[in-house]
């Protein structure tokens, strides 16, 4: 088996072992920390489809993360207060069911990604970065100024949403739900990167002219990748909101977009397991350095600089070597 596969297996198993250990020694905080890693990794897996495979440097993925969060917040707050979401033209009730919330989060993120992608993919390079950033800021300011759902203060959901047959308030059970979703997403992206679509998408990143010359329109490839990317990050947003039982406009900030991008870069751009490695590293740094100093971002910055200058393949690149073209 390839070394990258081994590194991936170790990461995935390690991510499972830590909360199980924490359960055994009764350290619920560690389980919550591991859940945070899993959810942030999922957000990174989403961005990695656009950034890693498609070469689309989106500084607006907080939009999807936030939309997922607000999908959860809005549905759950209506269910919590027993007020319908809409009465006309049809009656829409709120919901406390995770599967329903996930579906809504994915659908909304996907549709918005389609709209944002359709507009911003007409540009490239620095313009693309700026346009995605601008969309992010639009959603941020909109969420601040919409008092119906908490405005600047955000929305608190008192009880975690339900998943059939599980007690989601038990940290390890909620971890399990998130972990399974992450594994499914990783499987999906791994399949995707080896598929016909993935081949064409990666080729379009390396050489758009070549792809056009064989009769494939890069724009459509990128748009589809952007939508898939947005859907996965949106789902992560819904889980993140459920983890905290709180949604606020901070999910829409450009810092959030930046952090998601940092997971991908730290772990290794375009590597399937990259976001997982990146999110683990990020949370560990935040946990240990954050304990030392409030200004731990200085060290994060230095590390990021080091990765960009000396280890382009990120942590996965260091552990598993250069990317091999799979055949």
């Amino acid at each position: 088996m390839r070394r990258e596969t081994w590194v991936g297996i170790i990461l995935v198993l390690g991510l499972l072992a830590v909360p199980l250990w924490a359960l055994a020694v009764d350290e619920p905080y560690t389980i919550t920390l591991a859940t945070r890693v899993v959810i942030l990794a999922l957000a990174g897996v989403g961005l990695n489809v656009a950034l890693g495979l498609g070469g689309l440097v989106s500084l607006g993925h907080a939009v999807f993360f936030g939309l997922g969060g607000y999908a959860m917040g809005i549905l759950a707050s209506h269910a919590q207060s027993y007020t319908p979401l809409a009465e006309w033209p049809i009656l829409i009730e709120g919901s406390k069911s995770m599967p329903v919330i996930w579906l809504v989060a994915c659908a909304v993120s996907g549709l918005v990604a389609l709209a944002i992608g359709a507009l911003s993919l007409r540009t490239s390079g620095v313009y693309f970065i700026m346009i995605t950033l601008a969309f992010g800021q639009m959603f941020y300011f909109f969420s601040i100024s919409w008092p119906a759902y908490g405005g600047e203060d955000g929305l608190s959901i008192y009880v975690r949403n339900e998943f059939p047959g599980l007690n989601t308030l038990d940290p390890i059970q909620f971890f399990g739900v998130c972990y399974v979703i992450l594994c499914l997403a990783l499987l999906l992206v791994s399949k995707l990167s080896r598929s016909s679509f993935g081949l064409a998408l990666v080729a379009a990143r390396q050489n758009a002219e070549r792809v056009q010359a064989v009769g494939i329109e890069p724009y459509r490839l990128r748009l589809v990748a952007f939508v898939i990317s947005g859907v996965i990050t949106g789902l992560a947003g819904a889980l993140f909101a459920d983890l905290n039982r709180f949604v606020s406009p901070s999910m829409f900030t450009w810092q959030t977009s930046g952090e998601i991008m940092i997971f991908v870069i730290l772990g290794g751009v375009g590597r399937v397991m990259g976001p997982v490695a990146g999110a683990i590293m990020f949370i560990l740094l935040e946990h240990f350095l954050g304990g030392l100093s409030e200004y731990w971002h200085i060290y994060l910055g230095a590390l990021l600089l080091g990765v960009v200058l000396f280890a382009r393949g990120g942590l996965i690149g260091v552990l598993a070597g250069r990317e091999v073209a799979h055949d």
Binding site: L192, S196, L199, A200, A203, Q206, R210, I216, L221, A325
Partner: peptide, 25 residues
């Protein structure tokens, strides 16, 4: 596509010829 293998480049051509690039699995 310089980072791809030689075979991947020609397979991309064959894929374009066949015209069903939106297959995800």
């Amino acid at each position: 596509a310089m980072e791809m293998t030689v075979l991947q480049n020609v397979v991309l051509g064959a894929l374009g010829r066949r015209g069903d690039v939106f297959r995800f699995f």
